[in-house]
Simulated assay, not measured.
Amino acid sequence: MTGPRLSTRLRFGAAALLVAVGAAASVAAAPDLPARMVTTWDAAGEPTGTLSKTAGMWLVPGLAAGLLGLFALLPRIDPLRENVAAFRVHYDRFVVVLTAFLVALHLSVLAVNLGYAVDVTTLAVAGGAALFYYLGTLLPHVEPNWFVGIRTPWTLSDDAVWDRTHALGGRLFKLSALIAVVGLFVGEYAVYFLVGPALATAAVTAAYSYVLYARRGDDGSDPDAAGRTAK
């Protein structure tokens, strides 16, 4: 077994362990959970929806397990799997971070339904900020592939556009994370400090990739390359 393969298995094993922790917590809490569990809150932190006990116990662990299986499969079926191998460490770590985020949310929901005073909205914003920051760390390392990254028609059609768009996306997601942290000190409606910047980042990077692609030279060259080289 090669070193990189072992490392990937260890990281996915850690993510699987997190899923198991979430599932075990559901089993342990089951006797004391209400028949209807509160599972959604509005931007002000007020409960807005419930699920049956069974659904509330297993929805997130099931989702996390499914995503883990999907993330394990994608590098194997990607026609550009050799490009994925180039950033596999960052990819694997993102899977662990995302799984930890989902399990933390699940544990907080269980705690609320057991009667503990947990601010799920604040925890979601803080966890989302951490997730965005790591996404900002991941994106500059992502090589062209069919499943991971900012995949617009223009990034998928030109490697230079891909690289520059992902460099910008990395910076913007880190900025989004910082804005979300500021939102934690605002109090009510902190979730907007998480969702708003994320939507803006998606829109800006998509538009940026189009502009870069449209500005290519007739031969497909990067019109700014000469200037950057001169500097």
Rank of each mutant, 00 (worst) to 15 (best):
P4A: 03
R5D: 04
R9K: 06
R11K: 09
F12D: 10
A15L: 07
L17I: 03
L17W: 09
L18P: 07
S26T: 02
V27T: 02
P31F: 11
L33E: 03
P34V: 00
R36G: 00
V38T: 13
T40D: 11
W41G: 05
P47S: 12
G49W: 14
T50D: 09
T54F: 07
T54L: 10
G56V: 15
M57H: 08
W58Y: 08
P61C: 02
G62I: 02
L63C: 02
A64M: 07
A65Q: 06
G66Q: 06
L67M: 15
L73N: 03
L73C: 07
L74M: 12
I77G: 13
D78I: 00
L80M: 11
N83V: 06
V84I: 15
A86F: 11
Y91I: 06
R93E: 00
F94Q: 05
V95N: 10
L98N: 01
T99L: 13
L102D: 14
A104D: 08
L114R: 15
V118Y: 06
T122G: 13
L123N: 02
A124V: 11
V125R: 03
G128W: 04
A129H: 09
F132E: 12
F132T: 01
F132P: 10
Y134N: 09
L135S: 12
L135G: 15
T137V: 03
T137Q: 14
T137P: 00
L138D: 10
H141T: 03
V142H: 04
V142M: 06
P144G: 04
W146D: 00
V148S: 05
V148H: 08
V148F: 11
I150N: 09
R151M: 11
T152K: 10
T152A: 09
W154H: 07
S157P: 03
R164I: 04
T165G: 02
T165F: 11
H166A: 01
A167K: 13
G169E: 12
R171G: 02
K174H: 01
S176W: 00
S176T: 11
I179L: 13
V181P: 01
V182R: 00
G183H: 04
G183D: 08
L184M: 04
G187F: 05
Y189W: 04
V191I: 15
F193R: 04
F193E: 01
L194I: 01
A198K: 00
L199T: 00
A200P: 06
T201Q: 05
V204A: 05
Y210T: 02
L212K: 01
A214M: 02
R215I: 11
D218G: 10
G220K: 14
P223T: 06
A225T: 08
A226F: 12
T229M: 10
T229F: 07
A230M: 07
